[in-house]
Design a protein around this nucleic acid. Structure first.
Lengths: 161, 161
DNA sequence: GAGAGACTACTCGGATACAGTCTGTCCGAGTAAATCCGG
DNA sequence: CCGGATTTACTCGGACAGACTGTATCCGAGTAGTCTCTC
């Protein structure tokens, strides 16, 4: 059970887009170059974000992606679920129903006790991701990354957006 | 990012083994029949549990599996990790290092801020699973499953262990 | 009748095929900017 | 010089192959119980 690498890419790209000046766009090509990733495949991750309504796209020259919502409104969970989907990690197949000792048409009142525990853990995971916004991530990065790198990166982006 | 179905099987099988009288064993063949699962493949899940030291095996006629530890000592996390492995769901590939604006040989003092958040979520997930023991599961099941089914299942198992 | 030895049947464990998803790539539809032409 | 139509170049989006992990299966190594033979 691994998250796809798309999740990591999407998070990094959102962090970059969050630092973009209002009204500017950044193309998938540039996002890919900035992170050393295959452009075509990265664009598929961005596509997921677009379909989830987290980023907006603009076509044509000077086009690209920008955040569709305020960075304070977007959480880690939003991004992760946009790429990974909203399914629980645990998929209960109700194998308890195969027990030959059970009456065939017994009705279940509750979900399987095992599934309940697993789903609670999933919810705890989601809850943790829900608590961190993109804005907080940007703030942390701004505090930890050396000023020189931040500035050079900002220039690099400004030259292409 | 889905957990393998082996996880569900392992949890159900451990619940059954926890209810086994002392000194008895139950074969993979019977566990498979009880849950309506492919015997050969289920035995691979049991193999993982065996390698993790959660269950003990006995060969030959009347052989099979039994818990290697007290049900109170075994947690959901133990079983899940035995089958799934202990890796984090998020694998940081350090793509920040590909940023062309960074000095090539800059040393990192901290893990990537994104990875830290993701790993905290993983830890919250594990923490939740660590809090529920196999004994608690058995108790819950005993409370929720109709007495008749419990008794018939116990007989079914006793006849084969 | 009791004990030892050989046999048998049953168990798990690793090695071996098949499928589905993740990864990576390609090309086409659509659009905003730039260009060119006419007024 | 200015405005509008055309062209162009660039963007994203969905459709198409390859690799890897998860799923399913088979057969062999090893053991506990059973049976038989001998004393």
């Amino acid at each position: 059970m691994n998250l796809k690498s798309q999740v990591e890419w999407a998070l990094h790209c959102c962090a970059i887009l969050a630092g973009l000046p209002e009204g500017r766009h950044l193309a998938a090509k540039d996002l890919a170059e900035l992170h050393g990733l295959p452009k075509e495949y990265l664009s598929k991750a961005m596509q997921s974000l677009s379909q989830a309504g987290l980023v907006a796209t603009t076509l044509g020259p000077q086009g690209g992606y920008r955040l569709a919502q305020a960075a304070e409104k977007i959480t880690f969970l939003d991004i992760v679920e946009a790429v990974e989907g909203r399914r629980n990690t645990f998929a209960c197949q109700e194998i308890r129903k195969n027990n030959p000792c059970r009456p065939a048409k017994q009705r279940e009142t509750k979900p399987c006790a095992i599934a309940r525990v697993m789903w609670e853990a999933d919810e705890a995971w989601r809850d943790r991701l829900r608590r961190v916004s993109l804005a907080e991530l940007v703030e942390t990065v701004g505090r930890e990354v050396p000023k020189a790198v931040l500035e050079r990166t900002a220039e690099w982006i400004a030259a292409r957006s």
